[in-house]
Design a protein around this nucleic acid. Structure first.
Lengths: 314, 314
DNA sequence: TCGGCGGATAAGTATTCCCTTAAGCGTGAG
DNA sequence: CTCACGCTTAAGGGAATACTTATCCGCCGA
C-alpha cells in the first residue's frame, strides 16, 4: 500500500475513470490500472468496478476513499510542514484552465516570481475544470485559476473572482449561414471540457459535436477562423489586436457576448498554504491585473509550453 | 516518502533512540538509520538529532511528527476499513509484557481463538512497557496486556485492570545475607524494563545493576534461584507448584509481597478496532480468568516461542 | 455484426525500497 | 586515555514499484 497507489485510487474514484486519472497524473493508462490492481490484490477488494460509463465504488472502496484521501493530503502537508521555516522556499503548484494556461499563466507566474514571490518555487500545470477540485482537495495543487468551481459541501474550498472579461464569437471575412448550429466551431481542448466557459457556451448554443473541430491551442483556432474555416470563441480582451487589424470580426449570437470571469480557487483559509495565500494576494494587485489584461507584453511566444494535461509534481 | 519511512521516524521520535525503534520493529539498527537518512535527504532536514543520551526533534521534526503519526495510523485504518464486512477476518495484534508473554499470552490467545474469536486472526508480540503506548497509538498493535500504562493526555487510550496477583521474591534453600541489595537477582528481560512491575520493584529496593543477572526467561531464572544462585521475582500464582514442592521459598522484603495487576490497554472506545473490543470483552469472562490463573493447563511447553522483542506485522 | 472505446493484462526495464553484514566515527563514562 | 555504546555509512542483494509499449477483452452504439 503505497502513497502513489492510494493517490491513483483517489483520483480514479473522484474522477470516475481510469483514463481521466491517467491524464490528470500525466501517466499512461496501464500505469493507473496497474496501481489499482496492486491495491486490489493487497486489500482483497475491487474497490472500484466499471459500471457501464463510469467507475463505481464498492462498499469497501467507499470506506477506503475518505481515509486514502486524507492520507494523500497529509503526505503533501508533511512536506510543506518541513519546508516551512527552514529557509527553504515555499511551493506554489498552480493549475490553470486551457485558456488561462495558454495566455496568462506563464507571464503571471513570471511576474509573481519576480515580485513578491522570490522565495516561492512556482510551477504551472493545465487541468480540466472538473479535475481542479479533486487536485486541490488532494493537495496535488495549491491553487486553481479558471472558471468558477461549484463548491461541494465536503471539500472545503473557496472560489474568488479575480478577472472579469467577456466571451465573444469571432470569425474571418467569410459569410456564415444563419444558424450557429450549422457553423464550424474551432476550439482548443478547453472547448471539449463541459465545465469550462467555452464548453458551457457551446452547450447553451446546442452546437453538436460533429460541428466542433479541436485545435492544439486557441491561437491556432483563431488563425483558422481568420482563414475562414469557421468561427471561434475568444475572451474579448485577448483578440482586440486581431479585431483592430481586421483579421477577425465579432459575430453576435443569442448567447454572446457573454460575461466570463476567471476565479482563483483555493482551500479554505485555514488549510491554505502560505504560497497560495501569497499568490492570492498578488492577484489583487494592479500589476497582476495588467498582466492578465495584456498578457503578451514582453513574453516571447516560444516560451509557451505545449499543453500537457497536467504536469505532475513529484 | 514511504509509509515505512514515516513509521520508523515516528518510532524513533517517540522512543527517543534508533536502537529502541529498531528493536520495536524487529529489524537491524542500520535499517532504521537508513530509512531515517532517506527521509532526511528527501525533506532536507535532520528531523531528529542525537543530543547526548537520546535523540531530540528539530523544529521541522516537531512539525512533521503529528502529521506522520496520523498518516501511519490512517494506513492501518485503511486496511481495517476494507477488511471490515467483506467476510474477511478481523485482526487482533496483541503485545504483551515479558511475563504475560511467557506464561499466559499463548494459551490465552488460543482459548480466545477457539471461543468467540473464530473470525479473528490473532498474533502476539512482546514489547517493553514504554513501547506499548507508542505501538498502540500508531496502530502497530490493537491491544497491550501488561502493567498499567500511565496515560498521556494526547494519545487517547485507556488501561483497564484484568487480572490481579502479587509479586513475591523467591529463593532456593541457601541462606541469604541480610540486605536485598547484596543478593544476586535473577530476572528475565522484564527486569531490565524500568516501567515493568519487576523493574519498578528492583528500583524500589535500590538493587544495583551489578547485582542483576538476566536470563532468557522467567522459568530459567526460577530454576537458577532454586539451585541457590540467587533470588528471583515471580507472580505468586505462577510459582505455587514450585513452592509446594519445596523447590523455592518465599523471601519477604520491605516491598514484597506487592500487589501487581495486569492491565489491558487499548485505544479509546471510538477508535478501538472490533477485534480489540471483542478481546477486551473476552478477558472479562470466567474462561479467560481461568487461563490467566492456571496458564500451564494443556499447553505443551514446546509451543513457547523464544522471546522476540516485538514481532512486526507489516 | 462490426468498430470503437475504455479497462485489464502481458512483458520488459529502470528505479527505488528495504534489509542485511561489516566497518567507521563521536561522545560520554570510567 | 580508552573503551564501550550508539548512530551512521558502505556495499550488496532481493523484492517491490512504477513506468513503458503492445495486446486482449467486454461492452455499447451504429
Amino acid at each position: 500500500m503505497t502513497l502513489t497507489q492510494l493517490s491513483t485510487f483517489v483520483l480514479v474514484a473522484r474522477l470516475g475513470s481510469v483514463k481521466a486519472a491517467a491524464s490528470a497524473l500525466g501517466v499512461s493508462e496501464p500505469a493507473v490500472s496497474q496501481a489499482l490492481a496492486a491495491l486490489r490484490q493487497q486489500l482483497g477488494d475491487q474497490l472500484v468496478t466499471r459500471s457501464g460509463a463510469s467507475m463505481r465504488l464498492t462498499p469497501a472502496g467507499m470506506r477506503l476513499l475518505p481515509i486514502a484521501s486524507q492520507m494523500v493530503a497529509l503526505g503533501a502537508d508533511a512536506e510543506a510542514a518541513v519546508r516551512v521555516g527552514k529557509g527553504a522556499p515555499g511551493q506554489l503548484r498552480l493549475v490553470a484552465s486551457g485558456t488561462v494556461m495558454e495566455f496568462v499563466a506563464t507571464p503571471l507566474v513570471n511576474a509573481f516570481a519576480e515580485g513578491k514571490g522570490e522565495r516561492i518555487d512556482t510551477s504551472v500545470g493545465m487541468a480540466a475544470a472538473d479535475e481542479m477540485p479533486v487536485l486541490l482537495a488532494n493537495r496535488f495543487a495549491d491553487a486553481a485559476l479558471g472558471p468558477n468551481l461549484i463548491p461541494r459541501p465536503d471539500d472545503e474550498m473557496v472560489s474568488e473572482p479575480v478577472f472579469r472579461t467577456h466571451l465573444v464569437v469571432v470569425a474571418g471575412a467569410t459569410r456564415l449561414p444563419g444558424n450557429p448550429r450549422g457553423w464550424s466551431w474551432l476550439v482548443d481542448q478547453t472547448g471539449t471540457d463541459p465545465a469550462s466557459d467555452s464548453g458551457r457556451l457551446l452547450a447553451r448554443l446546442h452546437v453538436p459535436e460533429s460541428r466542433i473541430r479541436v485545435f492544439g491551442s486557441q491561437t491556432a483556432a483563431w488563425a483558422a477562423a481568420a482563414d475562414g474555416t469557421g468561427v471561434a470563441i475568444a475572451p474579448a480582451h485577448l483578440v482586440t489586436a486581431r479585431l483592430r487589424r481586421g483579421e477577425l470580426r465579432v459575430v453576435n449570437t443569442a448567447c454572446t457576448p457573454a460575461d466570463s470571469t476567471w476565479y482563483l480557487t483555493t482551500l479554505c483559509p485555514e488549510r491554505r498554504s502560505i504560497a497560495a495565500e501569497t499568490f492570492r494576494h498578488y492577484l489583487s494587485t494592479a500589476a497582476a491585473l495588467r498582466v492578465m489584461r495584456e498578457p503578451g507584453s514582453g513574453v516571447p511566444p516560444s516560451k509557451f509550453r505545449p499543453p500537457v494535461y497536467v504536469t505532475l509534481w513529484s
